[in-house]
């Protein structure tokens, strides 16, 4: 079975719209919510795929950015709904229930934290990088647990869905539409960046840092910029995820989520544009259908992962297009 990758990509996106479209007609709002969840997880994984797939950096702490985005939403909305100002010490700011404002804050905070962590960690590689990114994410996880003002261990419920100009965000299909459009825009950005001089150099640095240095480029700087971009995208996904659930909790920072993001990229196809999207759809599908049958559905996920790692190194997209990604 060999298909053109562009066609596969188009089909995947079409499928991701068709399912909630059908659900709208037969009035199955929960299915729309599932599709929204898939789109948001896909977005988070698209962010991770930039450092993991193109940059070759196994970040085992990307839940950190997902959580930051989530808490950015939670905290801004919390202050808006309680009409209290957010005191940052040197400045007091109002809360907000406007999605664009929340997204900007989520991306800005994530990018900033990614820059700091990147500067501290990007000189390490391999297993050290995995451990350090994990450690940073755990640090935020424990911090969130102890942060009583915003719910601590219990998390923080938000009673309104944040607004987007001109839309009724409480209608599931409209909120899905927002998430889907954001995903498509970020995929477009990803595709352009991947082919750009920056993407080409980043991809070459994964294959041979020495080669990249020999043409006068600094691999660490390339990776740092990739890490910041990646963190901002995953942070944006976190804000949407919090809005979907109208709830944030420390579990958004958990290492299992970091691991799941990696798993769904491997299932979909590492470094492939649509890999994260396919992986997220499969993940959410399994979680829903098998999760209803057994509590141990992760075993089946693990089995799929094992098959992919052993037999189909390009992930599902590699199987469909007959083109292995050259790397895992």
């Amino acid at each position: 079975m060999r298909m053109n990758e562009t066609w596969v990509n188009a089909l995947v996106l079409l499928g991701l719209v068709a399912v909630p479209g059908w659900a709208l007609m037969v009035d199955e709002p929960f299915t729309i919510t599932l599709a929204t969840r898939a789109a948001i997880l896909a977005l988070a994984a698209v962010g991770l795929n930039i450092v993991l797939g193109i940059g070759g950096l196994v970040s085992f702490g990307h839940a950190l950015f997902f959580g930051l985005g989530g808490y950015a939403m939670g905290i801004l909305a919390f202050h808006a709904q309680t009409y209290s100002a957010l005191d940052l010490g040197f400045i007091q700011i109002e809360g907000s229930t406007s999605m664009p404002v929340i997204w900007l804050v989520a991306m800005g905070v994530s990018a900033l934290v990614a820059a700091v962590i990147g500067i501290l960690t990007l000189r390490t590689s391999g297993v050290y990088f995995i451990m350090i990114t994990l450690a940073f994410a755990q640090m935020f996880y424990y911090f969130a647990i102890s942060w009583a003002q915003y719910g601590g261990e219990d998390g923080l419920s938000i009673y309104v869905r944040n607004g987007f100009p001109g839309l009724n965000t409480l209608a599931p299909i409209q909120f899905f539409g927002i998430c889907f459009v954001v995903l498509c825009l970020v995929l477009l950005l990803n595709a352009r960046v991947q082919a750009s001089p920056f993407g080409l150099a980043l991809n070459a640095a994964r294959q041979s840092a020495t080669r990249v240095e020999a043409v006068g480029l600094d691999p660490i700087k390339l990776r740092l910029v990739a890490f910041v971009l990646s963190g901002a995208i995953t942070g944006l996904a976190g804000a949407l995820f919090a809005d979907l659930n109208r709830f944030v909790s420390p579990s958004m920072f958990s290492w299992t989520l970091s691991g799941e993001l990696i798993v769904l990229i491997i299932i979909g196809g590492v470094g492939r544009l649509m890999g994260p999207v396919i992986g997220a759809c499969i993940f959410v599908g399994l979680e829903h259908f098998l999760g209803g049958l057994t509590d141990f559905w992760h075993i089946y996920l693990g089995a799929i992962l094992l098959c992919i790692v052993l037999f189909g190194r390009g992930g599902v997209i590699g199987l469909l297009t007959g083109k292995e990604g050259a790397h895992v």
């Binding site: 750009s196 001089p197 080409l200 080669r211 990249v212 043409v215 006068g216 910029v225």
Partner: peptide
């Protein structure tokens, strides 16, 4: 692409994010 990498290093550098390098 390998030769273009050299051209990127020699020319305007890697901080271009939109236009395809090989185009």
């Amino acid at each position: 692409e390998n030769a273009v990498l050299g051209a990127i290093g020699a020319g305007a550098g890697p901080w271009r994010f939109w236009r395809a390098a090989t185009r």
